[in-house]
Simulated scan of single mutants.
Amino acid sequence: MAEDRGMRAEVAASWHRSAAAGVSAELREAPITVDQGDLRDLRSAHPLARVFPLLDDVLGQAVRDCDAMMAISDADGTLLWICGTPKTLRAAERIGFVEGSNWDERLAGTNAPGLTIATGRPTTITRAEHFRQSVQPWSCAATPIHDPGTTRLLGVLDVTGGDQIVVPQTMAMVRAAARLAEVELGRESLLGPQPERPGGLRVLLEGLGRPEALFTMDDGRGRVETVRLSRRHSEILLLLAAAPRGLSGDELAVLLYEDDGASSTLRAELNRLRGLLGEEVLASRPYRLAADVTGDWLAVEAQLAAGDVREAMRTYQGPLLPRSTAPGVVRIRGALEASLRQALLRSGQADLMSAWTRSAWGRDDYEMWVAQRDAVDPASPMVALVDGQIARLDADLA
């Protein structure tokens, strides 16, 4: 089989992070981080408590019928609820897959809920892809559940079982159940009191790791539209999003073009962009976005300001519009990367440094490799790998 001949890149990256965090492949059980008394309080206060009965109804019974389990964790990896037959639950106890245990990959090694928390994406982990040997008889499929209003990660929905769940239909079913939960949470939110949003328009720009940005607009009346922008339009919107008070045509031109004399080109681009997005989104005099704007790079900046380096790394999908040479974009991109990099160097967290050095933009970062070596336990098998990469860079620099 294909899995016998190699390892998927995202799984390999997770193994590196698990090893860098000090997880032993021989660890039998995941740690219990919340006792039963505190667990009851944690569950009752958690937003997903409102949709747990729905998830148990649409997914819980289905997994019981095939001797699997449904589990729901919070955003930190603590398992809040686990549903399954008594026989399956007893078997899962032997690997510490119990309510109150924590399956963040830093504590439990590579697994689907932990990898979903680390990457923010749906994940399937099969048998030998698990970092810990005790978990390798199992397979699991997990997907994130987000707050529909803020897009904040609330938790992870997971199905764990044997080979019977390693089919595409399992992930489709898990993702459908998670989306249903998000819809229900959104419906409850709409029934409650809502703060006024200026203008009613909300705009999300996603440009991290993308040559062109994704533009998503919510008109506040139930219409949501996503558009993949051209590179130039991506640059314009990013620069306007970074200047909430707006920019004059001359200011925007300086930030956008490497040479002078492009005012007529800029006006044409702005007219095309206004035709694409609508008059209500792109205002003029000065040019600005007449909406409540959020961006993935702005989220990283906010997370760093709050000191949450781990969440910033989770959000950071790569350099901002990496192919752009617009002076204003180059400056924002460089400042963001420098801020995140310095926060990582100061964090002392080897698994986060490992995520950086395994990326396309960080694999030749000598200072980060050295910091990672200092952060890794001297007895860890990761030391040899890190030393090898430092030797490679020494040879290249020589």
Rank of each mutant, 00 (worst) to 15 (best):
L238Y: 01
S24V: 05
L340Q: 05
I32Q: 09
V63E: 00
E196R: 04
E105D: 14
G318K: 04
V174H: 03
V51N: 01
G199P: 05
R127F: 11
T123F: 03
D259L: 12
V135C: 10
I125H: 02
R132W: 13
L107Q: 00
R202E: 11
W103Q: 07
G222F: 03
D67A: 08
S24Y: 02
P168K: 07
L304N: 05
V51S: 03
L154D: 06
G278M: 11
G96N: 01
G275N: 09
H46N: 01
F215D: 04
L345H: 08
T143L: 06
R43E: 12
E235Q: 09
E196Y: 10
A181W: 00
R232C: 04
G60K: 01
A306R: 05
S354P: 01
W297A: 01
G109L: 14
A49T: 04
V293N: 12
I95L: 15
D396K: 15
Q169P: 03
V23K: 00
A68V: 08
L298Q: 13
D38G: 06
E212W: 00
Q169G: 10
V98P: 10
V51I: 05
V330W: 11
S14G: 12
L190Y: 01
Q164E: 13
E29D: 14
V183H: 13
G60L: 04
R40M: 06
R231Y: 01
L59D: 02
T119K: 15
P244M: 10
Q164P: 05
A12V: 12
T116Q: 13
A172M: 11
D377W: 06
A335Q: 14
W138E: 04
I165Q: 04
T170I: 07
T315A: 12
V167K: 11
M171W: 02
A398Q: 10
S339K: 14
L42V: 03
E26I: 07
E26V: 10
G6E: 07
S284E: 15
R221F: 05
L385Y: 14
A355K: 02
I32V: 14
N111Q: 10
A13V: 03
R210A: 05
D351N: 12
A45T: 00
W356Y: 07
L321Y: 01
L237E: 00
A9E: 14
V58C: 06
A384G: 07
R341W: 07
L256Y: 08
G96W: 02
L237S: 02
A213G: 05
T126M: 12
F52G: 00
D38L: 09
R187H: 08
A118G: 03
Q317M: 08
A291P: 10
D218I: 03
A306W: 04
I165P: 06
S139H: 15
C66K: 08
P86M: 11
I332G: 00
V370D: 15
L55G: 00
E269H: 13
A243I: 02
L255N: 14
G84E: 04
L180W: 00
L208Q: 09
D104N: 13
G192S: 08
R310I: 02
R267G: 08
E10Y: 15
N111M: 09
R314Y: 04
P144G: 06
E311W: 05
R333A: 04
T226S: 11
S359M: 10
K87I: 12
V156G: 05
L191A: 07
P168R: 05
A19R: 14
A291C: 09
G192W: 02
V227Y: 07
E29H: 09
M70I: 06
V227S: 07
L205E: 00
W356S: 12
V63K: 00
R132A: 08
T85V: 14
R341S: 10
G155W: 03
